[in-house]
Simulated scan of single mutants.
Amino acid sequence: MAWETHPLTPDRFEDFADVVNRNRRATHCWCLSHRLRAREIEELGGGSRERAMRALCEREHPPGVVAYRDGEPVGWCNIGPRAEITRLTGSRLIRPVDDVAVWSIVCVVVRAGHRRQGVTAQLLEGAVGYAASHGAPAVEAHPVDPPGRMDQTMAFVGTRPMFERAGFRVVGATDAVAGGMPRLVMRRDLH
Rank of each mutant, 00 (worst) to 15 (best):
A131Y: 06
S133N: 04
L36M: 11
Q117G: 02
D151R: 12
P161E: 05
P7S: 11
V66H: 04
G46I: 13
L32F: 06
V119G: 09
I41G: 01
I94S: 00
G158M: 10
P10N: 10
W30S: 01
H6C: 00
V110W: 02
A131E: 01
V119H: 01
Q122P: 00
V119T: 03
E140L: 07
L8S: 07
A166V: 08
E164G: 03
G129E: 13
P137R: 07
R37C: 07
V177P: 07
R37T: 14
R115K: 11
S104I: 11
R51W: 09
E125N: 15
Y68Q: 00
G179N: 06
G118A: 04
T89S: 09
A67F: 01
R92G: 13
A155H: 12
M53E: 02
R95Q: 12
P96D: 03
Y68G: 01
R54P: 00
C57V: 07
Q122T: 02
V109P: 02
S104P: 02
V119Y: 01
A17Y: 03
G64W: 06
R49V: 01
P81S: 01
L36T: 09
I79Q: 04
R12M: 09
A26E: 15
G46E: 00
F168H: 09
I94F: 03
A38E: 15
P147H: 07
W3F: 14
D175C: 09
A178I: 08
L124A: 05
I85S: 01
T86W: 10
V110K: 06
R116V: 12
R169H: 06
F13R: 10
H191Q: 13
P161F: 06
D18A: 15
G180C: 14
S91N: 10
M1L: 12
L36V: 08
R188K: 14
T159R: 13
E42T: 13
H61E: 13
Q152I: 14
S48L: 03
G167N: 05
R92T: 15
R54V: 01
S91F: 13
R22G: 10
F168T: 05
M154Y: 13
N78W: 08
Q122C: 08
H114A: 04
E140T: 14
E14Q: 07
E125L: 11
E43V: 12
S104M: 05
W76G: 04
C77E: 11
C77D: 11
H134Y: 02
M162W: 04
E140I: 11
L44S: 00
A101H: 11
G80L: 04
V177I: 15
R37F: 11
D189K: 06
A132F: 01
W30C: 02
S133Q: 06
T174W: 05
D99E: 13
R95K: 15
D18P: 00
H28W: 10
G45M: 05
F163N: 05
R25W: 09
G80N: 12
M186F: 11
